[in-house]
Design a protein around this nucleic acid. Structure first.
Length: 584
RNA sequence: GCAUCCGUAGCUCAGUAGGAUAGAGCACAGGAUUCCUAAUCCUGGGGUCACAGGUUCGAAUCCUGUCGGGUGCACCA
């Protein structure tokens, strides 16, 4: 349950009462009323702007209206004290029982705490990674993979029916280059001296294996014949091999997809023709010539009549080509067909996670989605900025295996998938990110992964030690959720409970904004509160979790600690990181 | 030239479904030890939220403009 909503409902009920008592006019716009946590504890637990928002339309002044509301709220069980403050805020302090009850809600819900029905079962398609099948994943891909995967989990937690999708770009010129590169390695495997890899082909060592595999399977079948004869088979063989590589990389990172869609298959099914025909019938397609780009004119610019889509009708800056001058489909055409396909599969809501280098592509794609769905579909594009891979502050070395980039696998092998995933979510996606291989393995608060995990491990340890000190206590979650927590009255304890109770709200707002990184920040804050309370036990033994000779107090504290661990685990689950039980 | 993201503490960045006195970490100065460990915490200084208007009871947050920076900009993927 989201307690903000709960209290807001109470507030709205009281407004209704004021209306029926003729103290407020009927028909007021209540949509701008909010209930929020206060920044300053002196203002109570929650504050509402209701009086300020309603005062003008109700032709009264905010403080007077606020007082009316406060008087009514003070009669409610949940509210210890309501009062008007500042320009007309209604500040509310809730009864302690309200907060302590939240803990058992956490324990009862377990890792599902924070689940909500915000999405109401609406189908959402999240497309991420979609790396070209031309080699292993590099660290930049990892960011999109993690962000997409976490966003999908987040939306799923928020009540959307999420489908996770990978679009295989296996139809462009790049896969022909792949085929040629693989053919070279194939000849190499058969004993030919190939020398240096020519410019324009992929030099990475990872293709050696592909060449060998093919040589083993087919012998010299593809040797000494023309390119046209071997290219289709080599291409499809190499694409399959690369997709296997990519799937392995994704597996190493723990990233999953429900659907893999092949561009080649989609085009082969005639979907490009279909969609262009449809656009044609609505007069959204024409043969034309694009203006040269303003500013600097490319040297080799020439007029090219080609098939264009009227994307400028739908918010794009200029119209965009569907076919190249030679008549081949553009990537854009396939992409339109692909998004139409998604829409037809029932996804009015689509989210694409792209690299920041595709920034210039967003508008045209959104225009296209508007056009083909009759404005019924919506595409949100999350752009992931660069990852600067560092090693102790200096740029990390390139990988030997891949030739020109650092592979995801190298990084995962070095620091672990949990650390990679967490780090990728420590910045908003459109900010560039420094990823220091040394720092993420450091055991210090410099390292947010460690910091959050450490809190979780400490809690697990407390529970283990409690079991030893008080063998008679039952410490499983269902016993804990029924335990007496009335003793939790220290401000530090209450603050932590409030923070826990805020988790559902974080889930909602992060899901609405499509920003999974907020989860990482929340967990860091929560861990900080826990560490802070923990350390108060150093100077004041009565504040320790385990209080010798007081099993009631100990039990109450263990309940709180366990609730913190549950929420950490719940947040980490969204991020795809496994909580650890000990740090040793 | 156009588009787009951004401009918050010395540094790296949170915070934008508008809310009260703008936060955290690092760095700097001082302090606290052992329930899992100081692997952590506490205290302190530090700000024209780029600038100027506007909307609003109220703006870091929304709108307009200016300045500054990153990125992209026929056909490629």
């Amino acid at each position: 349950m989201n307690y903000f909503k709960y209290i807001k409902d109470i507030l709205l009920e009281e407004i209704e009462v004021l209306v029926s008592d003729d103290k407020l006019p009927a028909g007021l716009d209540l949509s701008r009323i909010g209930v929020e946590p206060t920044k300053d504890a002196a203002h109570g637990d929650l504050a509402s702007n209701a009086a300020m928002v309603l005062a003008k339309p109700a032709k009264t002044n905010p403080r007077e209206l606020g007082q009316l509301l406060a008087d009514r709220l003070n009669a409610r069980d949940e509210i210890e004290k309501a009062e008007v403050a500042g320009p007309g805020f209604v500040n509310m302090r809730l009864v302690p029982e309200f907060w302590t009850n939240q803990i058992s809600a956490v324990l009862k819900a377990g890792i599902g705490y924070g689940d909500c029905d915000l999405g109401n079962g609406e189908a959402v398609n999240v497309e991420y990674v979609s790396a070209n099948p031309t080699g292993p994943m590099h660290i930049g891909h990892a960011r999109g993979a993690v962000i997409g995967d976490a966003l999908a989990s987040l939306l799923s937690k928020a009540g959307y029916a999420v489908s996770r999708e990978y679009y295989i770009n296996d139809a462009g010129a790049q896969v022909d280059v792949l085929a040629r590169s693989a053919h070279l390695r194939y000849r190499e495997a058969l004993g030919e001296e190939i020398g240096d890899i020519p410019d324009g082909l992929y030099p990475g060592d990872y293709l050696k294996q592909t060449g060998q595999d093919l040589a083993e399977r087919d012998g010299d079948k593809w040797q000494g014949i023309t390119d046209d004869e071997w290219l289709p088979e080599l291409r499809s063989f190499a694409i399959d091999a690369m997709m296997d590589l990519i799937r392995e990389d994704l597996g190493a990172l723990g990233v999953k997809h429900d659907v893999f869609t092949s561009e080649r298959e989609l085009v082969g099914s005639g979907s490009n023709d279909e969609v262009v025909e449809e656009l044609q019938s609505r007069d959204l397609v024409y043969m034309g010539t694009l203006e040269p780009p303003k500013g600097k004119l490319p040297e080799d610019w020439e007029e090219r009549p080609q098939l264009l889509f009227r994307s400028s009708n739908f918010g794009d800056d200029v119209d965009r080509p569907l076919k190249k001058a030679e008549g081949d489909w553009t990537y854009f055409a396939s992409d339109i067909a692909y998004h139409r396909d998604k829409f037809r599969r029932g996804f009015a809501s689509m989210i694409d996670v792209w690299g920041a280098d595709h920034k210039g592509y967003v508008k045209r794609m959104q225009s296209a989605v508007n056009a083909i769905t009759g404005n019924k579909g919506a595409l949100d594009v999350r752009l992931c900025n660069l990852v600067n891979l560092l090693e102790d502050g200096k740029p990390a070395k390139m990988s030997k295996r891949a030739g020109s980039f650092v592979t995801l696998r190298d990084v995962v092998d070095e620091v672990g998938k949990g650390a990679v995933r967490f780090m990728m979510l420590t910045r908003s996606s459109n900010a560039s990110l420094d990823f220091d291989l040394k720092k993420v393995t450091e055991q210090s608060k410099d390292n947010p992964v460690f910091y959050v995990q450490y809190a979780h491990a400490r809690i697990c340890s407390v529970i283990r030690n409690t079991a030893e000190a008080f063998p008679e206590l039952s410490l499983d979650d269902s016993s804990l959720s029924g335990a007496d927590v009335a003793q939790l009255r220290d401000p530090g304890e209450l603050a932590m409970i409030k923070e826990l109770a805020g988790w559902p709200q974080i889930v909602e707002s992060a899901a609405l904004a499509h920003e999974p990184h907020r989860v990482a920040f929340y967990l860091s804050d929560l861990a900080a509160s826990f560490h802070a309370f923990w350390n108060r036990g150093n100077s004041d033994e009565s504040l320790r979790f385990i209080v010798p000779d007081d099993s009631t107090k100990t039990l109450a504290r263990v309940v709180l600690a366990r609730a913190v661990a549950v929420v950490i685990a719940s947040g980490l689950a969204v991020m795809g990181v496994e909580p650890v039980e000990e740090m040793r």
